[in-house]
Design a protein around this nucleic acid. Structure first.
Lengths: 255, 255
DNA sequence: TAGTGGTCTAGACCACTCT
DNA sequence: GAGTGGTCTAGACCACTAT
């Protein structure tokens, strides 16, 4: 009896389940509430636990629920809007980071083949790498590696180590005058290092933001930022509309 | 014998498998080549097929391979860079679409509660909805719904239907003068309608780009675009760096 | 210790594509 | 018809969190 008797629906069971669960969540549950456990849900819907989990996987990918080992499955809060390019478009304080960036460490070494390629350098040239994380409202939303060729920072004193060096790199980069940014966004999964910073298991879906910083017409630095896809909505705002959006939010709150 | 004898690795089997497969793909396979079938791979690595598939799921999410029913599992080509905000930042021809947007249909009707909220309207107000898809190099990369309140287009003659109306809406929207854009990007899954347009099964991961268009300080339209996450890398370019990037690509091609 | 989600297995059938 | 990936099942054990 390998499989279904109710066939002829053309729609996979897990997809139909997802729809039903979504409706249930919207009508009978609220943010933060725990759903019945997987064994009970699968029994209730008359499917194998694996099939139920496939439906939950979808909803988790959509950011609609959060699963915590040992705890249960919770209805997720709406995603946080995380500004990636500020209203200023990166003109002033491009590499800034504002208050929510925390430096993790800083290393200097020869560029790998892949890194040399993206930085348009010869393999083995010295590159500073600043690893940092972005913490918004107590939650780590992103891990980043910022790569800067030593050659781009002629006035950097490489005497200090660790966080001091990171500060030096960021300050010098600011000083050379970043005058342009180019970004790309794609889907990826967190490898072990980033996963640890993001407090998530390896394989967690992330939005990979690659930012190329230009200074004096040349590529001065590349930042690879991985944002938690479950909790983040990346925003690329312009002030003109931002005002309008704020008005909307207010209106929605009233209604 | 429920599970493993080789335990004590702390790393899930499927994650380790992913790493091994990734290395194998990079060294022994090239773009477009088909991997051994799932039954053979699972036997070769001594795991259940479901476990192997979990590893393949990861690699597919990363855009490293493509699975085709009835055909096999292929090594994917690198993701295509798809410009979302052009160098002009949307100032001229914001809703343009360029040559690669194809109108699917156009409807006019009362706004749902959710839509009214995002458009900052009262529920039930008339809204034009243009559905279109973006085709790059013969591949459909995105499906979009562009919502425009009727009230924002006072000079639109609503006599024609279908594609003619779509053209009218786009032209009128252009005419009222869009003077600002605000975007967000988040992870989602394709529902049945979009999935069909994207030629993918429901549940396919997509990058959801929500664009708010402002005209005269007011929200004039909202576009929800779903880009295939497997094949697309969204780019938000600025001309200054774009030149540099082109140089890079050339350099990489030579090496 | 009890309960939860996470991983893994072995086997089955279905839907699709090619020859 | 043969071969592929897609779906589904029933059951087991593991890792974690609470009490």
């Amino acid at each position: 009896m390998g499989q279904g008797t109710l066939a002829a629906v053309a729609e996979p069971k897990y997809w139909h389940l997802r729809t039903v669960l979504l409706r249930t969540m919207d009508t009978e549950f609220s943010t933060g509430q725990v759903l019945p456990n997987e064994r009970e849900l699968s029994a209730r819907f008359g499917v194998a636990r694996a099939t139920l989990r496939q439906a939950l996987d979808q909803l988790e990918l959509e950011g609609r629920l959060v699963r915590r080992r040992g705890i249960g499955t919770l209805v997720a809060a709406p995603r946080v809007g995380v500004p990636v390019a500020g209203p200023e478009g990166g003109r002033s304080g491009a590499v800034h980071g504002g208050p929510d960036w925390k430096v993790v460490d800083c290393t200097t070494g020869p560029a790998s083949a892949a890194l040399a390629r993206t930085l348009n350098l010869a393999e083995g040239e010295q590159v500073h790498t600043v690893r940092r994380m972005r913490v918004v409202q107590g939650v780590t939303v992103a891990a980043e590696s910022l790569h800067v060729p030593s050659a781009a920072l002629p006035h950097l004193a490489v005497v200090v180590d660790g966080n001091d060096r990171a500060r030096g790199v960021l300050r010098q980069l600011e000083r050379v005058g970043v005058d342009g940014e180019s970004r790309s966004v794609e889907l990826g999964v967190a490898e072990s290092a980033e996963a640890a910073l993001l407090e998530r298991p390896p394989g967690t879906p992330v939005l990979v933001v690659t930012t190329q910083y230009a200074a004096a017409g040349r590529l001065a630095a590349v930042a690879v930022s991985t944002y938690r896809a479950d909790t983040c909505k990346l925003t690329f705002g312009e002030s003109g509309v931002a005002v309008q959006v704020a008005a909307e939010v207010k209106a929605a709150a009233v209604s």
